[in-house]
């Protein structure tokens, strides 16, 4: 009975709020999806943080710092949304450390050159935007509000990345080669960010029925590819897919087959940087322990003195 009333509310495009009744599987699906999203923002700080001290100019360095700080903020918005479902932030971090919660596989690829900062902003943030714009209409109120806030901040990320790529593409032949190399390495992982094909995505059914997701993996991927092809042409770079061509009949670009073996390999922990990313997060968390303890002790002391 409750399930029927719940589905009616969903079908009527009413948002579900934290205190509302919801099916247990809806709650579980949201916790998994939102925490994975939050962890992705936070782990995503690492490949870019890698280049802060080596940014080629003060301007580039300030921008990259601001962007990495935004990613931290986006992680916090998402942890907040997830906590409204009755799970603590400490528990979410523990699940990440124990490998029970995942994050986007894209961050398990290394960032080898400055051009990778361009490719990440342009392609990785670009793909994230397509996904997040769609999720602004998700049925869970706190998640939807988090997405709206994130989308407002995210377009600067994509534009700064595209600017780096455009600059390098019109630079020296070596610079253009670096930009092309970054595109070659990040293209396929970026389009795989949308997840498995709909036919191999068992959870898509419920997620669509409950309007947690508003578009399927394949729809979002197609939308990203359609937007991006022209952007590559404008800056004179070539997308590394021989099968990529405009399909007049479909009104979309056709594209080649993704390497799903690699995809699952990286998802299952065997990507180039999986261990490094997780180890670094654990180390930072452990090393910050005394700070958290000191802050709590200080608050306690103030409370006893009656000044808090």
């Amino acid at each position: 009975m409750n399930d029927e009333i719940f589905q009616e509310r969903i079908d009527a495009e009413k948002k579900i709020e934290p205190k509302d009744w919801m099916p247990e599987d809806y709650r579980k699906h949201l916790i998994r999806q939102i925490s994975q999203h939050a962890h992705s923002e936070v782990i995503g700080m690492q490949p870019e943080g890698n280049w802060i001290s080596r940014a080629p100019s003060l301007r580039a360095k300030m921008i990259l710092l601001a962007k990495v700080q935004d990613e931290a903020g986006h992680g916090l918005y998402l942890y907040s949304a997830c906590e409204t479902l009755g799970v603590s932030r400490e528990k979410l971090v523990k699940q990440l450390h124990e490998g029970k919660a995942k994050y986007s596989s894209i961050f398990n690829y290394p960032t080898l050159s400055w051009a990778d900062m361009g490719a990440i902003g342009w392609l990785v943030d670009g793909a994230a935007i397509v996904n997040q714009v769609s999720l602004q209409r998700t049925s869970y109120g706190p998640y939807s509000r988090g997405m709206i806030r994130i989308c407002k901040e995210e377009s600067f990320h994509q534009r700064q990345g595209y600017e780096i790529m455009a600059e390098m593409a019109k630079g020296t032949p070596e610079q253009k080669e670096m930009a092309q190399d970054a595109l070659n390495r990040f293209w396929w992982p970026s389009i795989m960010m949308f997840g498995p094909q709909d036919s191999d995505s068992p959870r898509t059914g419920n997620a669509m029925k409950w309007k947690i997701k508003r578009q399927t993996n394949d729809e979002l991927r197609q939308s990203f590819i359609d937007k991006t092809v022209g952007q590559a042409e404008v800056i004179g770079l070539t997308i590394p897919d021989e099968d990529l061509k405009w399909n007049e009949q479909r009104g979309h670009y056709d594209f080649g087959e993704m390497d799903w073996e690699e995809f699952w390999n990286v998802v299952n922990g065997n990507g180039p940087c999986n261990k490094q990313r997780l180890d670094h997060h654990k180390k930072a968390h452990d090393e910050g322990k005394w700070v958290r303890e000191a802050a709590k002790a200080y608050a306690k002391k103030q409370e006893l003195a009656g000044t808090n």
Binding site: A66, R145, A295, Q302
Partner: peptide, 23 residues
């Protein structure tokens, strides 16, 4: 606007500033 985690009121205000008013 949302929420923050903090141990005391000063930390709460500063965290809120960093998280919600960067622009």
């Amino acid at each position: 606007a949302g929420n923050v985690h903090a141990c005391d009121k000063v930390m709460a205000l500063e965290n809120a500033r960093e998280l919600y008013t960067r622009r």
